[in-house]
Design a protein around this nucleic acid. Structure first.
Length: 930
RNA sequence: GCAGGGGUGGCAGAGCCUGGUCAAAUGCGACGGACUCAAGAUCCGUUGGCCUAGUGCCUACGUGAGUUCAAAUCUCACCCCCUGCACCA
């Protein structure tokens, strides 16, 4: 009968919750293990990608629980930050895309209407996400849930930031953000058209002083080192230019770039007069590095809305500059003297530039596409292989020279830093305005660049176990790389920034040591403790053990015993914390968690284990809300069963690889589960009581499996573990049946152990199997099976291998006969004489072959052959004739059905049998009866 | 650009650390067969190319070069893909 996975799941989920078996309390003499996956952000329903992460955590939780640890698996909800507010705002603006997305997410129409209020979004998704957690049988202690925007938690965050301040890592500074000049808002990825992240890049803008004037023409450049070869400047003939004072220095930039200047510099004054390009054309400017006077020319490739609307022209090292300069010079009867500054082997610049020029101007107009193509490869080559040929940079490679020249220009006031949005396509705010870089002054930062702090963080990493091992490098790398990080932002949900109450605490920073909250939040609720009671003294005491309960009690009004139990709960659970997350969060969340733990928490409370897993993609495509191909957790549970999905997503791929969720694979798992239950139903019809060879084989496989799976579980190699625990088990059971295995005791034991091995990944199936096998207890609370090493029998497994290779020979033989159209009545299989097995086993035991030859003189050549084989390392294990005979007898029926012919197993020791060509211990004799 | 991870047969994915036993585990898919009224499940076989069909030959593990008696495996260079890159969770 087809198994109803959904019914089983519901039954056990209810049982587990009713019996509260996953609610964890402090048990003094039991080792704690707290596993914390990243809490989900509550702006949508959980999808199978989430399920991968939470199942991986659950596998750890269940496994460790079965290994005798006191396990705490808590969950909370993340709501701080901007995305939720952004959704609400977009709904308030009647954004149709947003509405469509929510509809894809199966949100009812009336709920969508209400979601204009961000709190409604939070309130809607929390229960939905909880439903999914429960449905998937996560072994979570649900009493400890909280939301990151609740007042109790805010108190903790305030304390955390006060700690950061005390430790001196909260610093003020300036930084640059993508900015909408129209709405006067910082724009992140979700605020832009097409959801692109505005990338801010710092370049240099070189100041060319206009001759006989106090104005500078500002030229943005990617290649400051080429300034020594500038022959002229280019501006756009059709553009308008303006004067702008930055720190009282007068610059001339295009009208379009005014907005960039205004936003990224502090002291800016824009002049009203508008200059035509023609009023500048032909004038001379001074090259600051060599005081050469060079003219301003015009060219239409200069974009007024990129950079400053003016560029320097270095004809020998830029195809645009070359082509346009030459065109301009030719048409104006001027002379062009390109100067070579960079030498690149195998690159003849003059020839190349001529080539570009001819090709690009072939049709009486200038083909920019051709120029661009040349430029691209020229830039790359010069950057990689170029060597400077001018003093004082002669002999230097381009990479180094660029840095040196930049430094020289900036320190001498010949250039200024200039920020641009680096994206290839122009980035626009949802309102339609062009996004610009904006300087933010007096912004609070967390200084993750602090050397002392970095050292502490690395110490934490040094002492942490990291899964998969491959990720370790990424963690160190991220720790090295992370520097200043904004600590506050202007909008979103969350805790007010203590040092600037107009702002909200940046929401990655408020989810770094939040896990500490799980250890006592249920006590706060039980005792009805109010937010205002959670003073800094409270957290100092609970988290850092500072102060005494009496004083803190007086301060907070929380009674002493409650305080003590909170402190105890924290120090118990937080003595062993395993943090799990998606691998994309290594450079952000996880690294920040590492740093904050290292700085704020006592050493004994540092994170002990860090692990990450990869993405889930669906049918080879990335899941995305806007594409509408997100596979929702609850839908998939209905369709395939929660356990099937769990196995697929959490054990289908290595931790570090992405998993491709496809129908075929998942259906395959479902069928295999069905097989297990079918087998279970068949046990009642099995009646063998004696242990046969095949039973020993199955025992051997089972115990080897337990041993291997345990090893893989310890290193969190879930795929390897469950290939063995699930897929291989099923193959072995099938094989057992093919060999006529029918011992109910053996099968029952196998299935019982299997049920336990499967518990971490398929808890419902496990629990159901366990109970159907007659057990009363919860499989989820049983001990992890231990292998019985004595039952691991290499010999019996070797015998099965020998049978395999012999069966293969038989199959080959019959297929040959079939090809030749020869018919036969039956196949006789001869098992070698006892004497030969004795010889074989003696040789395996390293008995001197010569001795054996004396004893068995008529088998001398056989002894020689086996001695050779033994030397090659071919045979190692003793063979038991009676077992091989018995195994073959058991396999006879199955073989008969495969080959569709009569099979007879014969014993060469039986005198009645004519034995012209000898059967060998590892090579049966096969005779076809025609 | 910087950093991390990769490129293996129709697909997924092991193996590469510790070179040979690797035409490359395992799973899936596809094809053929058995069973079935039929479908599914199950079982058996084929699944780089070639033919003389042999435990045969050729070509293969991103590309090129090198080390070696021997390279998917070691070294170097190159190409390509994925992920992250700052206020965004």
């Amino acid at each position: 009968m087809s198994i109803d996975l959904v019914a089983i799941e519901n039954k056990w989920n209810e049982e587990w919750l009713n019996k509260r078996i996953f609610e964890a309390e402090v048990i003094d003499n039991k080792k704690p293990y707290m596993i914390v996956p990243a809490f989900p952000y509550v702006n949508g329903n959980l999808h199978i990608g989430h399920i991968r992460t939470y199942t991986t955590a659950d596998v750890v939780a269940r496994y460790k629980r079965m290994r005798g640890y006191n396990v705490l698996y808590p969950i909370g909800f993340h709501a701080t930050g901007t995305p939720i507010v952004a959704v609400a705002e977009r709904l308030a603006n009647n954004d149709q895309d947003m509405i469509k997305q929510l509809k894809n997410d199966k949100i009812p129409e009336d709920v969508i209407q209400k979601m204009r209020d961000p709190i409604e979004i939070v309130n809607y998704f929390i229960p939905r996400q909880l439903e999914a957690f429960k449905r998937y049988g996560m072994s979570i202690d649900y009493r400890r849930q909280f939301v990151s925007i609740e007042p109790l938690f805010s108190k903790f965050i305030e304390w955390q930031f006060n700690k950061l301040y005390e430790k001196g890592v909260l610093v003020k500074g300036t930084h640059y953000v993508g900015w909408c000049p129209l709405e006067k808002n910082a724009v992140g990825q979700h605020d832009t058209k097409g959801d692109v992240q505005p990338e801010i890049e710092k370049l240099v803008a070189i100041k060319f002083k206009l001759k006989d004037s106090n104005d500078y023409i500002l030229c943005l450049t990617y290649r400051p080192e080429t300034i020594f070869g500038a022959t002229n400047l280019f501006i756009n003939k059709n553009a308008k230019y303006r004067r702008v004072l930055i720190d009282n220095v007068s610059y001339i930039v295009s009208n379009e770039s005014i907005i960039f200047v205004e936003n990224q510099f502090n002291n800016v004054e824009v002049k009203d007069d508008v200059l035509d390009a023609s009023s500048l054309e032909g004038k001379l400017v001074v090259n600051p590095v060599n005081n050469e006077e060079i003219p301003i020319w015009t060219a239409d490739f200069v974009e007024p809305d990129f950079g400053t609307g003016a560029v320097m022209s270095v004809p020998m090292h830029d195809a645009f500059d070359y082509v346009y300069s030459k065109v301009y010079a030719t048409s104006h009867g001027l002379e062009l003297k390109p100067r070579k500054l960079i030498d690149t082997k195998e690159l003849d610049l003059e020839k190349l530039m001529n080539e570009v020029y001819n090709e690009a101007t072939a049709n009486n107009s200038i083909n920019r596409y051709i120029i661009e193509k040349y430029n691209e490869s020229l830039y790359k080559k010069e950057f990689k292989d170029g060597i400077l040929t001018i003093e004082p940079y002669k002999g230097m490679n381009v990479k180094e020279a660029r840095e040196r020249v930049k430094e020289y220009l900036l320190s001498n006031g010949y250039a200024i830093d200039y920020y641009i949005i680096a994206n290839k396509e122009k980035v626009k705010c949802r309102c339609g305005a062009l996004v610009v870089p904006k300087i933010i002054n007096d912004q609070w930062f967390i200084d993750y660049g602090n050397k002392e702090w970095k050292k502490l963080a690395k110490e934490l990493l040094d002492n942490a176990i990291i899964f998969p091992d491959k990720a370790r490098k990424a963690f160190y790398d991220a720790a090295e790389w992370i520097s200043l990080r904004a600590a506050e932002r202007s909008n979103g949900l969350g805790t007010r920034f203590p040092f600037n109450k107009d702002h909200i605490i940046e929401s990655l920073s408020d989810s770094t040591i939040y896990m500490t909250f799980y250890t006592y939040v249920h006590i706060l609720r039980d005792k009805k403790i109010r937010p205002e009671q959670l003073s800094f003294e409270f957290f100092d005491y609970v988290i850092n053990g500072i102060g005494d309960p009496e004083t803190v009690s007086e301060k907070t009004g929380i009674d002493i015993s409650t305080l003590k139990s909170i402190r105890e709960s924290f120090s118990y659970w937080y003595s062993y914390v395993h943090r799990h997350s998606g691998y994309d969060l290594i450079p952000s969340h996880l690294t920040m968690a590492v740093f904050n733990h290292a700085l704020i928490l006592n050493r004994e409370n540092w994170l002990k284990v860090l692990s990450v897993n990869g993405y889930v993609i669906a049918n080879s495509e990335k899941m995305s809300k806007s594409l509408g191909n997100v596979l929702l957790a609850l839908d998939m549970a209905d369709k395939y069963g929660a356990d099937v999905v769990r196995l697929a997503v959490a054990a289908g791929a290595n931790l570090f690889s992405e998993y491709d969720f496809t129908d075929v694979v998942v259906n395959g798992i479902k069928e295999s589960v069905q097989f297990l239950f079918d087998l279970l139903d068949n046990i009642s019809s099995m009646n063998e009581t004696k242990l046969k060879a095949i039973d020993y084989w199955l025992y051997s496989k089972l115990n080897r499996k337990i041993k291997e799976v345990t090893e893989y579980m310890e290193s969190l190699e879930l795929r390897e573990a469950y290939v063995r625990a699930f897929y291989e088990s099923i193959n072995e059971l099938k094989r057992y049946i093919h060999f006529n295995g029918n011992n109910p005791v053996v099968i029952t034991e196998f299935l019982e152990k299997l049920a336990l091995l499967l518990n971490p990944i398929m808890p419902h199936v496990s629990e159901e199997l366990w109970h159907r096998l007659g057990n009363e207890s919860f499989a989820s609370l049983e001990s992890w099976p231990t292998p019985n090493e004595e039952l691991i029998d290499d010999s019996i497994e070797a015998m099965m291998d020998i049978i395999d290779s012999n069966v293969e020979d038989i199959k080959r033989l019959t297929s040959m006969l079939a090809k030749k159209n020869k018919s036969y009545k039956r196949i006789e299989i001869y098992i070698a004489k006892k004497e030969l097995y004795d010889i074989y086993n003696s040789l395996v035991e390293n008995i001197n072959p010569e001795e054996l030859k004396n004893k068995y003189s008529n088998y001398a050549s056989i002894i020689d052959n086996y001695t050779k084989k033994l030397k090659k390392g071919g045979m190692r294990l003793k063979l038991d004739k009676s077992m091989i005979y018995e195994l073959m007898e058991g396999y006879k029926e199955h073989l008969r059905s495969i080959l569709n012919t009569d099979i007879v197993i014969l014993d060469s020791d039986n005198a009645a049998i004519r034995d012209d060509k000898m059967a060998l211990p590892d090579k049966f004799k096969i005779r076809i009866q025609e």
